[in-house]
């Protein structure tokens, strides 16, 4: 059975754009309250959804970044909060990376290039808030 993938590419663009907008709002909320459970959950779910759609279309680079962002949000959820401003910056980098990739799909219809640096950064272990505080206070 062959599915009309052009239709699904358009649906992906619509839904992914909406999801990225929601991630952006949630990250701004996390800037104010780094323990916002709703925002952490929402980014997790949006990343999961983008991952599933991208995988269905064979956009492996998008799948990979969304997958690592989803995993990171799961770890942050377990830790209870975003540990530091650096962690938040990394999440914004994840958002920007996905936005750029979705823009490539919109403009060319082709799968975007891989983003190994971003994947590597998102794969680093999440530091707990206590560890992040300790690092900030330690003498340099």
């Amino acid at each position: 059975m062959a599915l009309d993938m052009a239709k699904y590419r358009n649906l992906f663009l619509e839904e992914a754009t909406e999801h990225l907008g929601e991630i952006s709002v949630a990250l701004l909320e996390l800037e104010k309250d780094r323990a916002s459970v709703e925002s952490i959950d929402l980014i997790f779910r949006m990343a999961h959804s983008i991952k599933s759609m991208a995988a269905s279309l064979g956009f492996d680079s998008v799948t990979e970044v969304a997958h690592h962002l989803e995993d990171r949000m799961q770890e942050i959820r377990a830790a209870g909060s975003v540990s530091s401003p650096e962690e938040l910056s990394l999440l914004f980098r994840g958002l920007e990376g996905l936005e750029a990739m979705v823009a490539v799909v919109r403009e060319s219809g082709e799968p975007p290039q891989a983003h190994p640096d971003l994947v590597e950064a998102l794969s680093r272990p999440v530091r707990s808030s206590a560890a992040a505080k300790k690092k900030a206070l330690s003498p340099r």
Binding site: L3, D4, Y8, E15
Partner: peptide, 12 residues
């Protein structure tokens, strides 16, 4: 929750 996935399952 994804319209994309609902449509795909329906179409399959």
């Amino acid at each position: 929750d994804a319209s994309f996935m609902r449509q795909m399952i329906r179409e399959i």
